[in-house]
Amino acid sequence: MKKVYLVADNITSPLGATTAQNFEHLVNDVTGVRQHNDKAISDERFFASLFEKGYFQTDKCWTKFEHLVIASLTEILYGVDKNISDKKTVLIISTTKGNISLLETEEPSPELDARIALHTSAKKIARHFGFVNEPLVISHACISGLAAMITGMRLIQSGQYDHVVVAGADVISKFVLSGFQSFQAVSPGLCKPFDANRDGINLGEGAATVILSAEKTDGETIELASGAVSNDANHISGPSRTGEELYFAIDKTMKGAGLQAGDIDFISAHGTATIYNDEMEAKAVTLAGLQDVPLNSLKGFYGHTLGASGLIEAIVSAQSLKQNIIIPTKGFSKQGDANRVNVCSQLISKPLNSCLKIASGFGGCNAAIILTKSQQDIS
């Protein structure tokens, strides 16, 4: 089967406009999460990672969501030797909410219905950059970013495409935040993934793009070795109580990569800092025999960036492999799960070759991927 490589990447977030800027801030324990008092989003003060108000351009042609996707794509495509007008190249966009915030500012109409449709944004963005193939949209709750990477991997392995550009983004609006507030799932302070005193999520804005390719570039390259998706079939918002379904995705992914538990150097967890999500992930990790493997959550740095979270965290994981550094879990201080997992509480520097990235979302969806240094780079 064809190998699939991550040949270029970008993270655009409140921590920076490039992957390098973002990773530098993570290494230095800088978070984008802070308290906000914005009545346009919430009547109450809230903690989130948001762009400064002047960041989004006032352009009637592009919405905030589209502007964010374009910013990330522009940064990654500049100077990259990949012909995006090639028939063997396709664009995939991952998001959970897209332009849903337009419901707050526009009058209902057929035109608004068309404008909110995710395929409308995808086609506009694809035309803007000159992609010739119809873009694909993956909107699968909070696993959207990982599901998009897995889809891209399979398209390359099938021989349908040689290069897949995967971009993900979401912005935070009153509509989005109020939904999580209605679940009483939003923390009144900085979130605490996997901690005994965790009390909910922080939300975040961000975008990320990765180019997947069948062609290995010069220098150190990260391989997308395997990936799988599963579903709890349990509840529309609550995760499985057993962790067995996420474990199924983990197990299938590890078998697909030909790896054992002892081959995984660290785990990038979803780690939303809600009671049930973190407990379920800890159970799944334990079922996989990975409870002693260093594990982190990046939600204390970025908040939960929804459709961008899987991409952002996968790119950070790839950088961790390249730089042999595991980022700690900001907000964590004391084990809070019955199934004790090895949560990183400080920066770890050691040789790294492989990473398991996992995610879960509403509707009981789960996803897992494995990133590895290419064997040539390891040897």
Results as ranks from 00 to 15, higher is better:
residue 5 Y to S: 11
residue 10 N to W: 00
residue 11 I to C: 02
residue 19 T to P: 00
residue 20 A to F: 05
residue 25 H to W: 02
residue 29 D to C: 02
residue 31 T to E: 03
residue 34 R to A: 06
residue 38 D to M: 11
residue 46 F to S: 08
residue 46 F to W: 07
residue 48 A to V: 03
residue 48 A to S: 14
residue 49 S to C: 13
residue 49 S to F: 03
residue 51 F to H: 06
residue 60 K to T: 03
residue 64 K to H: 11
residue 65 F to M: 06
residue 70 I to Q: 09
residue 74 T to N: 11
residue 75 E to M: 02
residue 78 Y to S: 01
residue 79 G to Y: 05
residue 83 N to V: 12
residue 92 I to F: 06
residue 95 T to M: 13
residue 106 E to W: 03
residue 107 E to Q: 14
residue 114 A to F: 08
residue 115 R to M: 12
residue 116 I to K: 04
residue 124 K to N: 13
residue 125 I to Y: 07
residue 126 A to R: 12
residue 128 H to V: 03
residue 130 G to M: 00
residue 141 A to Y: 06
residue 150 I to Y: 12
residue 153 M to S: 10
residue 157 Q to H: 09
residue 158 S to W: 01
residue 160 Q to I: 15
residue 161 Y to N: 15
residue 172 I to E: 11
residue 174 K to A: 07
residue 176 V to H: 04
residue 181 Q to V: 00
residue 183 F to T: 09
residue 186 V to D: 08
residue 188 P to F: 06
residue 193 P to T: 03
residue 201 I to V: 13
residue 202 N to D: 10
residue 210 V to R: 04
residue 210 V to Y: 00
residue 215 E to N: 15
residue 222 I to Q: 05
residue 228 A to L: 05
residue 241 R to A: 13
residue 246 L to I: 06
residue 251 D to L: 09
residue 254 M to L: 13
residue 256 G to S: 10
residue 257 A to P: 09
residue 268 S to A: 00
residue 272 T to V: 07
residue 273 A to W: 07
residue 277 N to D: 05
residue 279 E to R: 11
residue 287 L to A: 14
residue 294 P to K: 03
residue 297 S to E: 09
residue 310 G to M: 05
residue 313 E to H: 12
residue 316 V to F: 08
residue 318 A to L: 09
residue 322 K to I: 13
residue 324 N to G: 09
residue 334 K to P: 04
residue 336 G to N: 00
residue 337 D to H: 09
residue 337 D to K: 05
residue 352 L to A: 05
residue 354 S to L: 04
residue 355 C to M: 02
residue 360 S to G: 12
residue 366 N to F: 08
residue 372 T to G: 01
residue 372 T to W: 03
